[in-house]
Nucleic acid binder design. Structure first.
Lengths: 201, 201, 201, 201
DNA sequence: GATGAATGAGTCTTCATTCAT
DNA sequence: AATGAATGAAGACTCATTCAT
């Protein structure tokens, strides 16, 4: 019965990836050693190599699965039919990221920075990440188009430009969370609202 | 004559840091070896240790000097008295970053990602970076206050919130430059302008 | 029914040894891993250890069985009653070796080199091989004695010396086959005939 | 002064290759570990990698230098102008090999077997060895031609065939030395002489 | 009786750093 | 002041073998 074996395989791989993330989060991707992942996962050296071809494979799988999780986290927010205002969307997205990051041992923001850095020197990772962010920006552009159709946004602006700006706001929040440690969804929302508001309100 | 010695020292250090950056840019911080920096700088092993205490020192010095360069690049833009609109400022800042990044062998955007990642696992670096970005945000807040005083911006908004939003836009541009490779200052400006504009323009 | 079990056992062992030889032939003895033999034989790890005590046992059994096959190949040639001339015998033996070597996946010549090398560092193998070649040389000496009795060869020469020379010619052919790839039974026969011929023929 | 450095380099390389040969001789090529070569040479791990790119490089260099030594050993014998008989040449060559092999820690015959085996799975080595033996056989063919010119050998025989036969006798001696341990230059000479002699002498 | 997942000792190799010259 | 040879600890990865199921 291969089913048991497949489930076992998936479980072990998840076990390894979770351990890898806990290590990456603490020390960065390159500085994490296989031995540390072994210790964190409770598996032996050979067990790791049964489920992954090597360190690079673990890195790619871990980052890839992390991007998937991030996509699953943000998709419902983007697709919610009742989204009316840009600052509100931004606030919801950043709040979701923040609450997801607060779980112990898995800070999404710090991990993102490590992943971006690693993607600079890893072919597969670079493609993976470019595709993910390009796709995410396309979803944002869709959202912009709906707003424009609803009359909530200037219909003359190129949706891709607005999407690029929105994506910057989101990843900028991530960076400030990891570096300055005081990024605040509400502040981001207020700041953007202030920019959008007529000056002499 | 200690003065010559000091100049010599500074020149050698700059030579090493430049070489280090070229390596970091290509391969990331952790994956760069001392031997590669030696080869890139044309100096001997002992020379490196004469001018820096070790690899960590080179990393901190390189990132620190890079932050200084970035500050020097952006300061005149922030302080320019004639700055009138937020989208225009954003476009100027991102354009400056982009043109600075286009010089061969020193892509500021890619380097920033490496530096952020490294700062997660290096105490000194973390402090350095937090201080730099906090200070930069303070400068942005000053700018916001001036705009508010000039009536160009809603006076009721907390300047720090607006500054946080602006910083996000800037670093978001950096990330998109390095990851998706198509970040565009003009698009960022247009996108922000669209968000600020009244919907039914 | 132990008989079926015994047959089963022998069949499995042969299956393993055949697989082992295909691996040894390609990569040498030491460089072949148990996993490769497992893959080549289609058997599981535990099956290997059920039928052999370990890798060393497989090596010894494989080389031993190979020597037997070689002996069975050459024996009828040595014992053929109509053998009249030394060059003819040499040519027949080398031709037999060559045709045996041409089967895909089992080059006797290459395998011999691997076996000799391995015998240097394996006590059991060393004895096995010494005995085999000593016995083979004894058979050659018998042949020489028969030739001497028939008047086909100088009766004053020590048969063991002639046998040693003949064995050198044979294994020399094997080495040249594996290393220079152009060893030729006919050329060997002609060369020896030329040495035996009176100079001014 | 680069000369000192070059001499130093050559000396270290020789030191490593000598150590490697002592290990190869005892255990075969593949079964020898870098650590054993380190211990035998008295050098550290990194020192080895300063002078050789890796284990494969050491193997190739060691075998290559060994072939050179063998060539230097046999060349004067082949070129000696007073060589008159084939058995005498054979005896001189084998005797030279034997005396060279008797030095402690460097048995040329055992080493040859290891080298041949290794050449089966190492591209560079295979070419190296094929070229060496082909060239050696050409020298033998030259010798044969001279004998034929002097009337000492049947002028009608193809020199390359005779050379192939002679090479077989030599390498056959090497194999019997290493495997049966009783190969004897004099016996080889007598055996060949018996084959060459008229039967009813 | 058979499987294949698991192991831990061992392999080759690299690297930041030091030190004799 | 400067060199570059040397180090040893640590890195990723492999492999013959065992054991729970």
């Amino acid at each position: 019965m291969p089913k048991i074996s497949d489930e076992h395989r998936a479980a072990r791989q998840a076990q390894i990836l979770d351990a890898a993330w806990r290590c990456f989060y603490r020390q960065g991707v390159q500085a994490t050693t296989m031995e540390q992942i072994m210790a964190e996962s409770g598996l032996s050296a050979s067990a790791m190599y049964r489920y992954f071809a090597g360190k690079d494979d673990i890195i790619v799988a871990a980052i890839s699965s992390s991007l998937s999780r991030l996509g699953q986290l943000l998709e419902p927010i983007l697709e919610a039919p009742q989204q009316r205002s840009v600052p509100a969307l931004l606030q919801q997205v950043t709040a979701a990221i923040q609450s997801f990051s607060e779980r112990p041992g898995f800070n999404l923001c710090r991990i993102a920075l490590h992943g971006w850095s690693e993607a600079q020197r890893n072919e597969r990772l670079r493609g993976l990440m470019r595709d993910f962010y390009a796709a995410f920006r396309d979803r944002l552009a869709d959202r912009v188009r709906r707003w424009q159709a609803e009359g909530a946004l200037d219909a003359g602006a190129p949706p891709q430009d607005v999407a690029q700006t929105l994506l910057s706001l989101i990843v900028g929040f991530v960076v400030q969370s990891a570096i300055v440690h005081d990024a605040d969804p509400a502040a981001h929302g207020r700041g953007l609202a202030a920019l959008c508001a007529p000056a002499s309100a």
